[in-house]
Design a protein around this nucleic acid. Structure first.
Length: 162
DNA sequence: GCCAACGTTGGC
DNA sequence: GCCAACGTTGGC
């Protein structure tokens, strides 16, 4: 299958790219996504070996900081059923099964310097025209990235392999 | 901390 | 199914 590209947002204070890198095998579950559109991307779109930009939102300098690899397709997110979890979802509890999905990702590279949102906004390259991240008011925490945009963004900074 | 944009909830 | 109220996101 054709490899696909994505972008995932995270608040650096909650779970940063460095947190992912520090996990065993630089791998962790991407849990707690509670938005249908984002869930559907993970459930219907994500496949093994897809690649993901990790983006830090709500920080002083919002930016793409690194790259991760998708280890497999989406599967039910059990934190929705855990009443002690911050991601607990009462409706899933009623259903008896999680209505939310997560994926396993492995950090594979870190950009030599973050690729900031402001830099991307100032960049008028046609390759970025279809990047959802740059649309005003875009809040979706998981977004598709076209191959064209992926290759262009990767060309902006040296990627250090992990 | 503000606020615009957008998603979700729930009464009707 | 409509839509007002409310909650959340996330840049600034």
């Amino acid at each position: 299958m054709q490899k696909k590209y994505w972008l995932m947002k995270t608040e650096a204070e909650t779970f940063s790219f460095d947190d992912l890198v520090s996990r065993p095998s630089r791998t962790d579950r991407w849990e707690g996504v509670r938005n249908y559109q984002a869930r559907n991307f993970m459930r219907d779109g994500f496949a093994q070996n897809d690649e993901v930009f990790i983006y830090h939102s709500s920080s002083a300098e919002p930016a793409i900081v690194g790259v991760a690899k998708v280890l497999g397709p989406g599967y039910p997110d059990p934190t929705a059923l855990d009443s002690r979890s911050p991601y607990f979802d009462p409706k899933s509890k009623v259903l008896g099964e999680s209505r939310w999905v997560m994926v396993d990702v492995q950090a594979t590279g870190r950009f030599e310097a973050p690729i900031t949102l402001s830099q991307l906004r100032e960049d008028s390259a046609a390759a970025l025209n279809d990047l959802p991240l740059l649309r005003p008011g875009q809040r979706l925490s998981i977004q598709p990235v076209s191959e064209k945009a992926w290759l262009y963004i990767c060309g902006l900074r040296k990627l250090q392999k992990l």
